[in-house]
């Protein structure tokens, strides 16, 4: 059981790290501001979840676990809020990039 937990936690750690890294790459590769934000939200969602989750598993059932989870909780609450604040500011400032307005009657992909 302990080995399984251990292995799982390692896997989560490495996986989380991977997602964080991919998010980072995305933030560099993406062509304009909004798309970069999408990439960065990768590092704000699954990345921390996996990394901190892995740490939580590592520490067993103790106060540390609770603290790690508290960190995760706060990250998951504040992260999107900050992203929203930024996205809002950018969109008010008129930053567009390649974004177009969505039209419901888009012929290419009819709505289900």
């Amino acid at each position: 059981m302990a080995i399984v937990l251990d292995a799982l936690s390692w896997a989560m750690l490495v996986g989380g790290a991977l997602f964080v890294l991919i998010g980072g790459i995305g933030a560099l590769r993406m062509p304009d501001f909004f798309t970069r934000m999408h990439a960065s939200s990768l590092t704000d969602s699954l990345g921390p979840m996996l990394v901190l989750g892995g740490l939580a598993l590592q520490s067993g059932w103790s106060l540390e676990t609770v603290k790690v989870l508290a960190i995760l909780l706060f990250l998951l609450i504040t992260g999107p809020t900050a992203t929203y604040a930024l996205g809002h500011a950018a969109s008010v400032a008129g930053l567009k990039g390649g974004t177009r307005e969505y039209r419901a009657s888009d012929p290419r992909e009819p709505r289900a």
Partner: peptide
């Protein structure tokens, strides 16, 4: 709004009177 933002690929950029402006990848 936050849930939308939290799922990568969609991004809330404005909330006004119950309408959310969402940017999708």
């Amino acid at each position: 709004g936050n849930s939308i933002t939290l799922t990568p690929g969609t991004l809330t950029v404005g909330v006004e009177t119950g309408r959310l402006r969402v940017h999708c990848l």
